[in-house]
Write a protein that binds this DNA or RNA. Structure first.
Lengths: 195, 195
DNA sequence: TGTACATCAGTGAACGCGCGTTCACTGATGTAC
DNA sequence: TGTACATCAGTGAACGCGCGTTCACTGATGTAC
């Protein structure tokens, strides 16, 4: 049956959020459309009234997750300039490791994006560039010419560290914690030194 | 029909190698048993004569891939002590980015391992620790107390950089190259400085 | 304002398909005598 | 050395299952008059 335009928009948003959460937790291949619909309080048919395909929903879910994650990071500064240490405390943490569903899609899906279509890759690139720009702006103690290379390394390092910490969590929790702690500190020091 | 014991062992090895290659390229969920059997020159039935399940094959394929990758890295030194720069030139390169099938399973599968069972996570941890120990041994200019933290960060950073470079390759090849170049250099400098 | 009805978000049965796994069978191997 | 036969790696049809997608249908919404 038809619903109000506002309700339809809310349903669409619920589908995007539910898909994002589930895709981050179990991968795009690991979740079916029936479960996404159910998690959004709808049926799978509703998904096809809003999106042409599961892949199209995946691209939008990635974009929305990146947007939400970026918003959370920028909110860490209380209006003051953002500090690298605060960002790393938030992203390279046991908390972020354990809350995959609510976390940053870059860390949740890095090695899967390469297998998705070009639209998904494009959304990934946008989110990554935004992250790099955010980190670059915190590198006030680093020579300007060096900042971008450092920012690229820090963002890639953060993504790798969280992915490794998650992969090791089941078999070796202590190592997982150690990776988080060491990476957090060493990447943090890259923002303080000179060239 | 029965085959010689040697032939059976060769077939088993072919299944493990084919599965490793395909899993790295397209993910464990992305490849079916029929294709693995075919790639090894057998049928899918042969897979179940050698392994109890696809998951068991996945764990063995990961272990074998890690072993092969580690061997390739240690071969980079010609008997001399291994140098960090040589390892990074090999692992953080456009070549390694583009040859997923033949590359290091840590980079190919990082964000998928967390969703697999404990056996797969255990094989991942073994391979990761071996990589960290190898990198640590190259950090001769770094204070001993600092070496392990640096090595953890370098290995995690390398994994993240290659994963990001692969994810960005479709939508933005220039950015993909830039991530490889910047990470290669910045991580390399972590082996040369003092504390 | 009241009425008629076109719109379209949402439903859910049904589709073809490929998945992982099972199992009865084959037949060369390799051993016991 | 020659023969009989148990072993078991490998085959491929068949299984139940869940997947993504389609589409005829429903019925409240919202608009035209």
């Amino acid at each position: 049956m038809k619903v109000t335009k506002q309700r339809a928009a809310e349903n669409r948003a619920a589908l995007v959020r539910a898909a994002g959460r589930l895709f981050r937790e179990r991968g795009i291949d690991g979740v079916g459309v029936a479960e996404i619909g159910k998690a959004a309080g709808l049926t799978y048919g509703a998904l096809y009234a809003q999106f042409p395909s599961k892949d199209a929903l995946a691209a939008e879910a990635l974009a929305e997750g990146l947007r939400a994650s970026h918003e959370r990071v920028t909110a860490l500064s209380g209006g003051d300039p953002l500090r690298l240490g605060d960002v790393l405390d938030f992203l390279v943490s046991t908390r972020h490791r354990d809350e995959i569903a609510a976390g940053c899609p870059l860390t949740a899906s890095a090695s899967e994006i390469a297998r998705q279509d070009g639209t998904v890759s494009a959304r990934f690139v946008e989110g990554f560039e935004r992250s790099v720009a955010t980190i670059e702006a915190t590198l006030v103690g680093v020579p300007v010419a060096e900042r971008r290379a450092r920012a690229l390394t820090i963002v890639a390092g953060q993504i790798g560290a969280v992915a490794v910490a998650r992969a090791a969590a089941k078999a070796h929790p202590a190592l997982s914690d150690e990776v988080i702690g060491a990476t957090r500190r060493v990447l943090g020091e890259m923002g303080g030194e000179g060239a």
